[in-house]
């Protein structure tokens, strides 16, 4: 897929694929906590340190940042029409989501080690 400035189909696909992952992960979390709720620190830490959960959660956070980017970008494009303000907002939101993505991976990494 070649990169083009306004590729609507790609955004549409990113939003849907991330949505399916986010929904599946959340449903799995609901099932897991209703079977066994991690009420102590060692239990909670043990969950997140488990390789499968750690990687699945990393994919969750990455999907979340992409999903939020497409969704919030749509909202900004709909309601903020002055181009300068729109540009500044999108830069801030993009930088924020990128930082939060890196932050989440750092947390997961420090738990796994």
């Amino acid at each position: 897929m070649s990169w083009r400035p306004a590729n609507g189909l790609r955004s549409w696909l990113i939003q849907r694929i991330s949505a399916v992952y986010l929904a599946s992960y959340l449903i799995a979390v609901v099932v897991a906590i209703s079977i066994c709720f991690p009420s102590t620190y060692s239990q909670w830490h043990g969950w997140i340190a488990h390789p499968v959960i750690n990687v699945a959660t990393a994919i969750f956070f990455i999907s979340l940042m992409f999903h939020a980017w497409v969704g919030i970008r749509d909202v900004v494009l709909d309601y903020v029409s002055p181009l300068v303000i729109r540009f500044i907002l999108l830069v801030f939101i993009g930088a924020g989501l990128l930082s939060m993505g890196i932050w989440s991976i750092r947390i997961l990494f420090s738990v796994a080690l």
């Binding site: 620190y41 830490h45 997140i48 979340l64 939020a68 932050w103 989440s104 947390i107 420090s110 738990v111």
Partner: peptide, 23 residues
């Protein structure tokens, strides 16, 4: 709800970080 959830990400990441850092 999408906007609210987006705004809440930093708060929950902070809690996630805090809860895993130590007892």
């Amino acid at each position: 709800s999408g906007i609210l959830l987006f705004l809440s990400i930093p708060f929950f990441l902070y809690l996630f970080d805090l809860s895993l850092a130590s007892k």
